[in-house]
Design a protein around this nucleic acid. Sequence first.
DNA 1: CGCTGTCTTCCACTGGCTGGAAGCCAAGCC
DNA 2: GGCTTGGCTTCCAGCCAGTGGAAGACAGCG
Lengths: 259, 259
Amino acid sequence: MPGGARETGRTVTSRALAILGAFDAGHPRLTLTEIAERTGMALSTVHRLAGELEEWRALRRGADGRFQIGRRVWELGQLAPDPLQEVAHPWLQELLGGTGENVHLAVRDGVEVLYVDKVYGKRAVPIVSRTGGRLPMHPTGVGKALLAFEPGWFVRSYLSRPLERPTPRTITEPGRLARELAQVRAQGYATTHEEMTLGSCSAAAPVLAGDRAVAAVGIVVSSWRVRELPRLIDPLLTVAAGIAVDYQAAVTGHRRSSH
Amino acid sequence: MPGGARETGRTVTSRALAILGAFDAGHPRLTLTEIAERTGMALSTVHRLAGELEEWRALRRGADGRFQIGRRVWELGQLAPDPLQEVAHPWLQELLGGTGENVHLAVRDGVEVLYVDKVYGKRAVPIVSRTGGRLPMHPTGVGKALLAFEPGWFVRSYLSRPLERPTPRTITEPGRLARELAQVRAQGYATTHEEMTLGSCSAAAPVLAGDRAVAAVGIVVSSWRVRELPRLIDPLLTVAAGIAVDYQAAVTGHRRSSH
DNA sequence: CGCTGTCTTCCACTGGCTGGAAGCCAAGCC
DNA sequence: GGCTTGGCTTCCAGCCAGTGGAAGACAGCG
């Protein structure tokens, strides 16, 4: 009975979006069959919809037949308005200029940090964060800086879950983490020591709007240069404060035009 | 006759994509009615589809009811693989470090340049290029650098159209432009003098892979500092060459993993 | 209060969507 | 060569999700 076994209750749009959603940082390239598996849709359905998405350049098909996200999606995504990233970028440059290390900007999204910008020079060590990438909050500098300025109920809820442990040095004990967050709040910045990646340390400062952190600036250095970290704190705090001021001005100042 | 006047021949997917496609650099925020007008679809149809897109966070609805591209699209777009941008970024930093001016990377897309990366410090003058933005080729430095290394038939076809003229200094005469492209090819870089924006000059160099330009690096300075431009040529060429080498290594070297 | 522009909800009709099945094609194996 | 496997493409009968006109809700304004 062709077509008779249609799974009801799913819209066409949701299916098309499900195909796009099948791609993530861990699966940036997928075969038709893989997409069908990941979405639970029939192969022929995926074939037709993916073909349409490809035609619109939302997907691109490589020589090996695998699909990947197309440039048009990237282009569209650049229209997602983010006044924060815009005002922060030159400040990140400033910070990079003095150090040559990785500098990045992140916001909280759910219980993870989402990296919205990253600048790096040729001398910088490779790090795991990636623009558009996500990481848990407790092992990252920006994550701790953000978490420290979240309301109590959020922090308690965060700490009540079992916490990932990417390295042996990751702090996962709720009590110890809570004490550290209090310290972050008191001193205005957070540090990490190989808690996300062995070989890398970091410092991060929140971008405050009132008593809430709207973002965090982080800087990463390799572990053997951990002694230089203290000297980076002052510039880091200056930059975070500068972004906060510019951001306030940007959101309260001019209205974004619609045309 | 409800539903009877359905416009045939359009798939649901194409309608959903049309809604996304209604947003562009000139129209980043749209009301429901505007989307309906721009796509030629019925208001109620747009209402339902846009609602679904919003639920998936492909769209975001502001307090004023206007829609805009959602963060999820931005995030997805970051998965669009671009080894070029990745290897080029630290080189752009290098160039910015020495100058403090706007530095950007562009590729050709159709008959336009598409800006794929841009770095700028706090001292840089505001310029029209925008990551994800497009501009015509003949009035921009990166555009001329790219056009000069296109095959003859492409250049002839480009020159045979009527060319936009954003400023009085834009070169639109086919003959003069062709001569300039020959010079660009000979000297290995292009310059502009207020051809896109009054008050800004630029220099740009192609990133060559064999005899084809896969991208171009550009640097923009304000007109009153045009005398400094010649001193930027050497660093610019160095960076363009460096990107070319790293890019070759990246595409021929390691295969991108699928998992 | 009526007018206007924008958005939301409703619903009868129907054509685009679905997914099983069969066919295609290249690679690997005997 | 023949057979098998895996991934992709095409086909099509049946039917339900999608459509869009219409009516209603809502806010702003003079």
